[in-house]
Design a protein around this nucleic acid. Structure first.
Lengths: 203, 203
DNA sequence: TGCAAACTTGCAGTGACTGCAAAACGATCC
DNA sequence: GGATCGTTTTGCAGTCACTGCAAGTTTGCA
C-alpha cells in the first residue's frame, strides 16, 4: 500500500519533523531559547533526543525549521518563470512566493519565532549559516537564468541579497507591529534592485 | 607608568588575543577546524582554556579574529568623510579601507583562513552572526550620515549588503587564485550600489 | 611598600552533538 | 499471514564547547 509519493513512513516523518519544529519554537518562545534543552524539546515531541538530531543537525536549525525541500523547490520556481522575466525579478518573485506560502502554512509559528528572534537576533544569522549549500543551489538556478557561469559573482550576490533582505525585514517586522512581512521583504529587495547608491529622502 | 592608551596590561592583552587568534587559524588550517580543540589552541597560545573564553565568546569568533574595536572604528570612519560624500560611498570606502588595513597587518593569517573557509563555508556566515551589535553600530552611523532615523531600512540594508559583499568576495577569493580581495569586495559593492536589477552581460 | 583593580586560572557542571549497535517498525513478496 | 529486508528509532557512552564561581596572580597607582 503506497500512495504515489506519500507512504505511511513519509507521513510519519513529516509529522515528527513538524512536531519537533513546533515544540522547539513554542518552548523557546515561552521560556527563552537557551532555557530550553534539546531533551525537553524531544520529550515534548514524544521522541528521543537522538531522533531530534536525526531530523535537525542543530537546535538552531530546528528553531528556524530548516526545510530541506525548500531550496530545490525555490530553484525550480526560479527556473519556471517565462524567459522574458529578468533573473533578479524571477528571484524576487520566488522569494515572495515562498514567504507567502510559508506564512499561509504556519503563520502562528512565525509569530512565535518573531518573539524569540527579537531577543536573540544572532539566531537569525546563525540559522542562515546552515543554508550554505542551499544558497549554492539557488545561485546556480539564478546563474542559469542569467546565462552566466555559476562561478560569477552576480548570481551569488542576488541570493546573498535575498538573505540580507529577509534578515532585515524580519528584524523590522519584529519591531514595527502591523506590517506584513512580505511587504517588508519586497521593499528591501526593491532597494537592492534599484541600487543603494542613492539614499531615499526622509519625507 | 602609563603611555597614553597603551599600558603594559593593554599590550599583554593585545598579545594574548593575537596569539590565540593566530593559534586558532594556523591549527585549523593544518588539521581542519573541527579536529582542533580549544584546549589545544589554548595550549599553543600558552594560556588556560578559561582564558581563551575570556577573549573570545566562541571558537568561531577566534577563527575569524573578531575584533571588538573594529565596529566603533569603522563607524568613526564613516562619519569622518566630508559632508558631500553620499552615505553609501562613505560606507563603501570604509569597508575597503578596513580590508586594506587588515590585509596589511595580517595577510598571512587571511591566507590560512582562506583554506579553512574553503572547506567549511558555513563558518564565514556563522562568524558574522556574532556581529549583530556591530552591524547595529555601523547602521547607526550610516543612518546619521543619510539623515535618516536609525529604524529606517536603508542604512541596515547598506550594512547587510556590506556583509554579503564581503562573504561573496571571500568565497570567490578562495577559489580564484591571484585576485585581490579588496578588488572583489569593491566590485560586489559596486553592484549593490548600481542595483541588481540588470544582469551584467556575459562577455 | 601596600592596596585595589584587572587578569588568569582551575574546577565542577551543563548541555549540544556524534557514532555505534540493537531494537522497533513499515514495505514487500510469497 | 508470515518471512524478510530496508528504514527509522532508540539508548548509551563519549567528546567537547562553554559558563559561573572562587581563588590566585599580576599590574597600576599612591
Amino acid at each position: 500500500m503506497n500512495q504515489p509519493g506519500e507512504s505511511l513512513r513519509d507521513r510519519k516523518k513529516r509529522q515528527t519533523r513538524a512536531a519537533l519544529e513546533r515544540a522547539t519554537v513554542t518552548l523557546a518562545a515561552e521560556r527563552g531559547y537557551d532555557h530550553v534543552t534539546v531533551e525537553e524539546i524531544a520529550a515534548a515531541a514524544d521522541v528521543s533526543v537522538r531522533t531530534f538530531f536525526n531530523y535537525f543537525a542543530s537546535k538552531d536549525e530546528a528553531l528556524i525549521g530548516a526545510d530541506p525541500e525548500m531550496a530545490p523547490r525555490a530553484a525550480e520556481r526560479v527556473l519556471a518563470f517565462p524567459a522574458d522575466v529578468p533573473p533578479f525579478e524571477a528571484y524576487r518573485r520566488t522569494v515572495l512566493a515562498e514567504i507567502t506560502d510559508e506564512l499561509n502554512n504556519a503563520r502562528d509559528l512565525w509569530l512565535l519565532r518573531k518573539d524569540v528572534l527579537m531577543q536573540r537576533p544572532d539566531l537569525l544569522v546563525r540559522a542562515f549559516a546552515t543554508s550554505a549549500e542551499s544558497e549554492q543551489l539557488l545561485a546556480a538556478a539564478v546563474a542559469r537564468r542569467a546565462g552566466l557561469p555559476e562561478s560569477h559573482t552576480y548570481p551569488r550576490l542576488i541570493v546573498a541579497a535575498g538573505s540580507a533582505a529577509f534578515r532585515c525585514a524580519v528584524t523590522r517586522w519584529a519591531q514595527d507591529d502591523g506590517v506584513a512581512l512580505g511587504d517588508l521583504v519586497g521593499e528591501a529587495l526593491d532597494m537592492f534592485g534599484t541600487g543603494l547608491a542613492h539614499a531615499p529622502s526622509n519625507h
